[in-house]
Nucleic acid binder design. Structure first.
Lengths: 231, 231
DNA sequence: TTGTTTTAGCGCATAAATGCGCAAATTTGT
DNA sequence: ACAAATTTGCGCATTTATGCGCTAAAACAA
C-alpha cells in the first residue's frame, strides 16, 4: 500500500502507513446473573482453533473501540444495547499466531432478560450451540484461548468492586426493585451473603422510593425502589 | 506490503496484513512531587505541532506497551527504571491528523531524586528547556495536544486512589522513611492535610520498623520504617 | 544539669458502623 | 375474624474509627 498523498509526512518523508502496525482486537467479558450465580457469556469459534472464547473482533477503520465491542456482541451473540467499559490492553507480541495483535479487553453486564431472543435462547437446531453462559468458577478448567481467562478474572474483579458500593451499577435488575431483590442480585454477583441491615444502610441513600409496593405475594408487600441518577 | 507467506490465512485467503490497521502510540503521565506539590512531567515537541506534551511514542513491532513507555521516557526525558501502569485507550478516530492513531495512556510515579541527571536538570544551554515539571492545577491552562489533559486527569485520580490506602505505593520515598515523611509525601500527592493519628493507624499495619532512628535532627529522633512486601 | 525542640504513643470522649432479635405492617389463606 | 407469611424498620448492645490534648522520650543547645 502506498503512502496516502493527503496525510502529513514526518521527518523522514513518511506517513504512518509506511511503518509496521499491529492489528487491534477487542474482547469482551459479558457478565450476567443466572440461577443466582455470576456467569460469563462464551461464543463458539468455528474453524481452526475452534472452541469456546469471549466474543471479540478486529477494530475497523473509523470505528471506536466500544463500537467494535457492540458490533461483536451483536454479530457473535445477538446481544445489543450495551455500554462496555475498557479493562486492559493485552499486548504479548506472540499472543496470536496470525501475527502482531493487541487486544483491548472490555467488560459489560447484561440482564438475563436481554439475552432472550439472542443466540443463547435460540432453538438449538444445530447439534452444538453457538453460545453459552458459564459459571465463573468453571472458567479455570476450560482452557480458553489467548488471555481470555485473565480477561474474565479482571472483569469479575472490576464488576464486583462496583457492586460493593453502588446499587446494581450493571443494570441487572430491569425496572423498579425491592430491597430484597437488590440484595439478592448483589449476593449473586459478589458470590457471598450480605448482612441485611448493613446492606440497606449502604444502599438506601442511593435509592428513591417509587411509592409503589410489590404485588402478588403472600405476606407484607415490599416497597419498590429505583436507583437515583439512573436513566 | 504483500502477505507474509508464513502466516495463517483466514476464510478469505488473507492475512492480518491485508487489512487496515491503526498506529498505536503510548503516552505517559509521569508524576512526581516537587516542593510539596504533585507535578507532571511534560516534554517539548519539536517541529510542527510544537509545544508541551506528555512523553510518548509509537509502539514498535515485537515491543510490549510498557517497553515502549520505558523507551519514550528514556529517549524524551532521560528517565529510566520505571514500571508504568495502563490507564485507558484513547480511540477517537480523528484524534490525530496524521491518520488513524490509538493511544494507550499510562501513568507512573518517579521520585524527584531519579530525575537528577535527566533532561529536567541538565544545564540549559538551549534557550528553551526540553522538559519541565508542571503543577497539576496548572494543566488546564496549558492547551495540551490530543487528549493529554484527560490523560493527566485520569492519572492523578488513579494515583491518588492508590495513595489513600497504601504507604507510598509509587515509591516517591527512596529508602527508609519516618512516619512524618510518609504523611507529608501523601499530603503532597493527595493535595490535602491528613490527620496524624488516623493516618498512622491506617499505615502502621503495612509498615515494618527498621529499628533505626533518624539522625541529625534536633528533638526526638523519629523511628524509620519500610513498607512491608516492598522490594 | 537544665531547657528547648521534635516526634509520636496514648487515654479518652465522641462519632460512626455493624449485627441481631423483635415486632409492626400488610398481604393472602382458611 | 384469625392465622400464616413476608418484608423491613428499629432499638440496642457491641465494635470500630476518629480526633485531640497531653506528655513521654530522645535528641541538641546553652
Amino acid at each position: 500500500m502506498t503512502s496516502s498523498p493527503d496525510r502529513p509526512l514526518d521527518g523522514s518523508g513518511k506517513t504512518l502507513l509506511d511503518y509496521p502496525r499491529p492489528s487491534v482486537a477487542v474482547d469482551t467479558a459479558l457478565l450476567t446473573v443466572h440461577d443466582g450465580a455470576l456467569k460469563v457469556l462464551l461464543v463458539r469459534r468455528p474453524g481452526p482453533g475452534e472452541g469456546w472464547a469471549l466474543p471479540g473482533t478486529f477494530v475497523h477503520p473509523g470505528e471506536r473501540l466500544a463500537d467494535a465491542v457492540l458490533r461483536s456482541l451483536r454479530e457473535k451473540a445477538g446481544v445489543t444495547g450495551r455500554s462496555p467499559h475498557q479493562l486492559h490492553v493485552f499486548d504479548e507480541p506472540d499472543r496470536d499466531n496470525r501475527g502482531w495483535v493487541l487486544s483491548v479487553a472490555h467488560v459489560d453486564v447484561v440482564p438475563e432478560a436481554a439475552l432472550i431472543g439472542s443466540a443463547v435462547t435460540a432453538p438449538r437446531a444445530k447439534p452444538q450451540p453457538v453460545i453459552e453462559l458459564v459459571e465463573i468458577d468453571a472458567i479455570d478448567s476450560m482452557d480458553l484461548p489467548y488471555d481470555h481467562g485473565q480477561i474474565i478474572g479482571h472483569a469479575v474483579t472490576h464488576i464486583r468492586g462496583n457492586y460493593k458500593t453502588s446499587p446494581d451499577p450493571g443494570g441487572l435488575l430491569t425496572g423498579p426493585f425491592t430491597l430484597k431483590e437488590l440484595r439478592e442480585v448483589h449476593e449473586s454477583v459478589l458470590g457471598e451473603p450480605l448482612q441485611r441491615d448493613t446492606f440497606r444502610r449502604t444502599m438506601e441513600r442511593q435509592l428513591s422510593a417509587t411509592g409503589a409496593m410489590s404485588d402478588g405475594t403472600k405476606g407484607r408487600p415490599a416497597a419498590l425502589f429505583v436507583s437515583r441518577g439512573a436513566t
